[in-house]
């Protein structure tokens, strides 16, 4: 599905800008669920379509905001990113890594066979 354009989406500088209005259909919900690797039943897809549209309708009001020239937030704290030294300080404990694994063997994790 494509975004429905109302007026001109690129005219962000306009205070009259009304942005794009989107809603999802059940097929979109199924596609997104697939992308998120969550199996959904028909009922769930139906219900979630309504819920998602309710939320998307709610967030639609952001289109009222004039964000022309505004930088998106990258971090709420303005500090320099901490860095680590290039020293091996961790690892060397495979048993701890697989300790909680549903299925493991010889410290490998086991998963249903992946075909490439």
């Amino acid at each position: 599905m494509a975004p429905r354009r109302d007026r001109c989406y690129t005219r962000e500088h306009s205070s009259l800008f009304e942005g794009i209005y989107m809603s999802v259909d059940t097929a979109t919900v199924r596609r997104v669920a697939r992308l998120a690797r969550i199996k959904v039943t028909d009922d769930e897809a139906e219900r979630m379509t309504n819920e998602l549209n309710s939320i998307l309708g709610f967030v639609e009001q952001l289109n009222e905001v004039d964000v022309a020239g505004v930088e998106p937030m990258t971090s709420v704290v303005s500090v320099k990113m901490r860095r680590r030294q290039d020293v091996v300080t961790d690892g060397e404990d495979a048993a701890a890594v697989v300790a909680n694994a549903p299925v493991s063997e010889d410290n490998f994790f086991l998963v249903p066979k992946v075909v490439e």
């Binding site: 494509a2 794009i20 905001v65 930088e71 998106p72 937030m73 990258t74």
Partner: peptide, 16 residues
């Protein structure tokens, strides 16, 4: 296709 319209815009609003 939706990143700019939603996420990027929301992060700009967050700046405001």
């Amino acid at each position: 296709g939706y990143y700019d319209a939603y996420y990027l815009r929301a992060q700009k609003v967050r700046t405001l």
